[in-house]
Structure formats: structure tokens, C-alpha cells
Amino acid sequence: METAIWNFWFYGLWWINILANGFFLYQLCRPFLEFRSGRLGQVLLFLTLAGISGMVIWIGDPNMLYTMPVYFLLFLLCTKGNRTGRLAVGIVIFCLTMSVCALLDTYVLKLDTARFYELLVRVLRTTIFGILWLVLRRHFPKERVCLSRRLWQLILGLAIMPLCALIAVVLLTFQKYDSAAVNALAMNQGLVILPFVLLTSTVILFAILILADHEKLEQTNRLAEVRELYYQGLRQQEHQVR
């Protein structure tokens, strides 16, 4: 009976964590995206983000390689608008999520290999995603973020850097199982690079918000200049009439 209650609570908590992770990640990327098919696109994105947040990602393990194409396919299918911008946001969210998963799954495992490890990893994932959302939500605009094509291309170029670092430390270290020296090197690299990927992804989201505010201010200034020219023209016409 105690085992049944433990299993029910343990796996029930797993679903709660997955849904909570999906909610926080969805809220993180919602201000930057426009969805296809209305509510259906939003639900699909939510399920996609919840799914990747539950993946077990270890340094040197190919799970991320299997997750990546499915994630980007679904991400692009349920959103619309500027393709460069959607891809840039998708890469940033992917790097943010995978860096957290790889950090926790790899290094918390060294603390405990029993069920306590799985429980701790789940709680920590939800906690980190929740903190990131609480920090960023104060800076989210009421309207959807809009950038020019050139700025989205700049963001895409910046987003590729943490993605390459993530791939290098997670996927290209598969030889760690063949050598203790390679394993130690891979673990040390991950301890440095994965926090860098997480920090860089968060900073890029901040950069998008700052660029959006700057572009909105420029548009307001241009509109004010056009209005001023219009009023000057009216005043000149009135002066000529008089």
C-alpha cells in the first residue's frame, strides 16, 4: 500500500512538474510569437515546451539530438510571422531549456542516484524556469514584440553561438564513456559552458526586449517628425493665404 501511494504521488508530481515547466516556458516565449490557428497553435506550443522540459539530457548522451528536430518542426508549425524571428526565438528557448536540463541531470546525479535524485531534478527544473519567468515578466510589453528583419537577423546570429556551445558540450562529448580523462574533461567543460549557455540565452531575451523598446521609440520619433512637418506645411499655407 505504501509503495502504491509513493508511486502515485511520485508520478503525479512528475506530470505536475511537466505542466508547470510548459507553462513557464510558454509564458517566456509568448510575447515574441504569433500563433497559427489561434488557440490550437498555443496548445501545441505549450505541449511541445512541456515535452522537451521533461527530457533527460546528459553530457555525452544523444537524447538532445533526437529532441532537436522534433522541437523545431513543431515550433515552426504552431507559429507564424517572420521566419527569422521565429527561428531565433525558438533557438533561444531551446538553449535555455536544454542547458537547465543538462546541468541538473548530469551534475545532480553525482549527489544521489536513488529516487531522490529524480525528485530533486524535477523540482529544481520547475524552480529555475519559474524564477526566469518572474524575472523577465516585468519587462514584457503589453503588445507582441516586433523587430525589423535586420534586427531579427542579428538576434539569430547571436542565438547560434549558445546553440553551438550547447551542441559541442552535450553531443560532441560522447567519447567520455571510453576514457576517464575524456570524461573528466567533458564534465569540467559542461560545468563552465552550460551556465554560460543559460546566461547567454537569458541575456538575448533581454536584448530582444531592449531592441523592441528602442525601435518603438524610433518609430514614435519618426511619427512626431512627420506630424511636425505636416503642421509646418499647414502654417505655411495659412501664411500664404493671409
Rank of each mutant, 00 (worst) to 15 (best):
T126H: 02
L211R: 07
M68K: 08
L124W: 08
L96P: 00
E238K: 06
P141T: 09
L154A: 09
D105C: 12
V197A: 00
T106H: 02
E215I: 06
A184L: 10
L124C: 13
L111W: 10
F10Q: 03
M68W: 09
L104C: 05
L104S: 05
A4N: 06
F72A: 08
L74F: 06
I16G: 04
E2P: 02
G60W: 09
Q189E: 10
V197G: 01
R83E: 14
V56I: 15
G12T: 09
V92D: 01
W6R: 07
I155D: 02
C78N: 01
S148D: 14
F35T: 01
K176E: 11
Q175W: 11
C146K: 10
W152S: 02
N21R: 01
F72P: 04
D213W: 00
L134W: 13
I204H: 00
V92Q: 05
E218S: 10
I18C: 00
T67G: 07
A88T: 09
G190I: 04
T84V: 15
L172D: 09
V241D: 12
S148Y: 03
G22P: 01
L229K: 14
T67N: 11
L217C: 05
L109N: 02
G12C: 07
Y230Q: 11
I131K: 04
W6F: 15
E143V: 11
S37H: 06
F8Q: 05
N221L: 15
Q232L: 15
V241W: 12
L109Q: 06
R86S: 12
F129R: 04
H239R: 10
E2S: 09
T127P: 02
I93P: 02
R144G: 11
G85C: 08
W14R: 04
V43Y: 11
A212C: 12
L198I: 06
G41C: 10
R138N: 09
L156N: 02
I18W: 00
P162L: 08
M68R: 08
K80Q: 14
L19I: 13
Q219A: 14
L19E: 00
L103Y: 03
L25Y: 02
I5S: 09
N183M: 08
K176W: 07
Y231W: 14
V121L: 05
V43F: 14
V123T: 10
L47R: 01
M161N: 05
F94I: 12
R125G: 03
F94N: 03
L73K: 00
L124M: 14
V135A: 09
T127K: 07
I52Q: 02
W58A: 10
A102F: 08
F75T: 07
